[in-house]
Design a binder for these strands. Structure first.
Lengths: 395, 395
DNA sequence: GTGAAAGCGCTAACAG
DNA sequence: CTGTTAGCGCTTTCAC
């Protein structure tokens, strides 16, 4: 800036005025300054500007994993709102690790972001208190923090959504409904489990722990859990899955568990020549991409399936037929849910709305809105597509 | 920092030393300083630090859309590499708009990011020259810039991948192969079209423009293009799609175009009771999620399909049967490709590796590696799953 | 209209 | 081991 001033033959301050479109600069002078800027390729250093002015016009976004479609939708929404508010966004994936979340948040705070949108991995956000005290605003999205911190929060109606989904299965005649959820330390997983229990209670159905499995949505774990349930004396006729990744893993598990069905004439599709889901698919073709693009999973379905060959397959209930006729409702919508056969019935959240709502709330706070702490709950939406309307199988 | 110094009864510089873990501070003094820091809730201002030291320990990432699984995978990879290098990352989605890309890049530069990873939307990056001159390093990923700028670039083997995919269809007996690509202004779309032509040439097959359609991967456009091709006198027996979104749109188009098939006994699956892809799906259930989570599409398949009812459906070739028997290979892998029936054969790129490679190259540059400009090409990988191995239909 | 001086919070370069 | 001074690039304040 000094150089520009010298080149244009004006004082530093005049350059500053021109650069910031401040009024009260002679047009000719301004033009001279602009030429000098052009000549020298000068660019204002926003870091220095920020240091002086106080506000950084940037926010931090901490999510679980950008590569997860749910969070990438949320990210995009936050990004768009930020752009509209003239703000840039630092993005960081915590990978469900509270420690990493903390590091990211503190790093963003050290950069003096104006605010934060956080999808928390842990519950203890005591470390945030000083930052909030120092004036950094934060909005929690998708999950709340512990009661110690009183901050704006935007959640989905997790329990209600699960209740709706399970009630839907009950309405279609199911009495033995399995629940496959994410790790029980995760807030949304617990909430959805609660919704599951509420729906059972409301229908006067018993809660059977052997029909419930909570854990990370890894293929091997999900396949094992499903195999175990299908081998029960009283196996489930329907399945409610607690999130998108688990739904997909469960579908793959069903594909595996119903493979090599001796008589491909179950109550639903199949019986085709080349390949059908849960029918005689050719596993040699599944390839490394079966975990989907962006997948970080290291477990391969093939590995587990082959190590168990002949295990569940010869269960006394005929796991294959059960697997092939299981009704399914999943929490979270996902791409291509409608193109599977049957199409997958889901309880959909709206990640974009979630991100937008959280970011807009944040910017309202930054704009000075100082009302009481807000706790917003977003609705979920049941989308019947076929898999959730299948009747209970009877053998 | 001043306050901390005063509270601890030391000089400013000593606080700085403690905060930065610099050696040469008496343990007792350091402890006193730490207590003052704790007491006052002091946090170092990294912005000021950066101003003084020169390096910001942050990079900028400009992609097309974080919500696209390809780019969200790339993002995650860049993020991880950045974290490993102690850097934070500003993320911005250009939405395929060169103007917005430019604004994002310049905003990042104004913040003095150390470097940039850019998936360019346009070709003219003249605006970058001064920034590069000013010492900001940039790596282009997925797409190159025009020849005017000589910068490090990491690409996939787009032409080679398309060639492989089309050759695969040819090897399975197809002679009439359609190509459905993204907007022809996009580098990767052009490259893949070239690969398509090369594969045809290599097999001595003619290039028929009526089998090629380039444009945005919107459902309405893709459905219309497919309907038009299937109504040709010599319709295609196979389809090569130019990217993930287009593949998905094409599959939905086939579902639409083969719906209400009077005799559900085509050469491939189907014939099931409830719902099968390309079979008699119940459109009333497709719901708002048919564009998948995170989808920004405003067009709804239902709208288009109903406006054309009875149009292509009564084409003299029986579009339905053609649609139901079309072989498909898609560029880009996507989640659940293996669970569709038939499973979808793809030419897979590796977005994670792309992001990692680009980011690692960037950090090597930032670390001082000053070799000649690098142009890295990443391989693609054919994954046969069923849809690409279907024989040509004969009616 | 324009400019000079002070200082945002920090660290580099020197003292002691 | 500790402290002083200068200055990163900018904006604010106030004077001309």
């Amino acid at each position: 800036m000094n150089d520009v001033a010298a080149t244009a033959g004006v004082a530093l301050k005049t350059v500053s005025r021109v650069v910031n479109d401040e009024p009260g600069v002679n047009a000719a002078t301004a033009e001279r300054v602009r030429q000098a800027i052009e000549l020298l390729g000068y660019r204002r250093n926003d870091g220095a500007r920020v240091l002086r002015r106080g506000r950084t016009a940037s926010i931090g976004l901490v999510i679980e994993d950008v590569a997860d479609p749910f969070y990438s939708g949320l990210s995009r929404a936050v990004e768009d709102v930020a752009l509209r508010n003239g703000s840039l966004v630092f993005t960081g994936s915590s990978g469900e690790d509270p420690q990493r979340e903390r590091e990211l948040v503190l790093a963003f705070c050290a950069r003096r972001v104006d605010g934060l949108v956080i999808v928390p991995a842990g519950y203890d956000h005591g470390y945030l208190a000083p930052e909030l005290h120092a004036g950094i605003r934060a909005v929690f999205a998708d999950r709340p923090t512990g009661p110690a911190l009183d901050v704006d929060t935007v959640l989905c109606d997790n329990a209600g959504g699960a209740r709706t989904g399970v009630a839907h299965l009950i309405a279609h005649g199911h009495r033995r409904i399995a629940f496959l959820g994410d790790n029980a330390v995760i807030f949304t997983a617990k909430e959805r489990l609660s919704g599951y229990r509420e729906a059972l209670d409301a229908a006067g159905l018993p809660y059977d722990p052997s029909l419930v499995s909570m854990g990370p949505p890894e293929q091997a774990r999900v396949t094992a859990a499903m195999a175990g349930m299908l081998a029960l004396d009283h196996p489930p006729t329907a399945l409610f899955t607690g999130n998108g990744q688990t739904t997909v893993a469960a579908l793959r598990a069903l594909e595996i568990l119903s493979a090599r069905d001796p008589e491909p004439n179950s109550s639903r599709g199949g019986g085709s020549a080349s390949a059908s889901p849960r029918g005689p698919a050719s596993p040699r073709h599944s390839g490394p991409a079966s975990s989907g693009p962006g997948g970080q999973e290291s477990s391969r379905e093939g590995g587990w399936a082959s190590s168990r060959e002949g295990g569940w397959a010869s269960s006394r209930h005929g796991g294959q037929r059960l697997a092939a006729s299981l009704a399914i409702v999943g929490f979270d919508d996902f791409q291509l849910a409608d193109l599977l056969s049957p199409s997958i019935t889901v309880v959909a959240q709206d990640p974009i709305r979630l991100g937008r709502t959280a970011a807009e709330l944040l910017f309202r706070r930054l704009a000075g809105e100082n009302g009481p702490v807000e706790r917003i709950q977003l609705p979920t939406h049941l989308i019947p597509r076929g898999s959730g309307e299948l009747p209970p199988a009877t053998f």
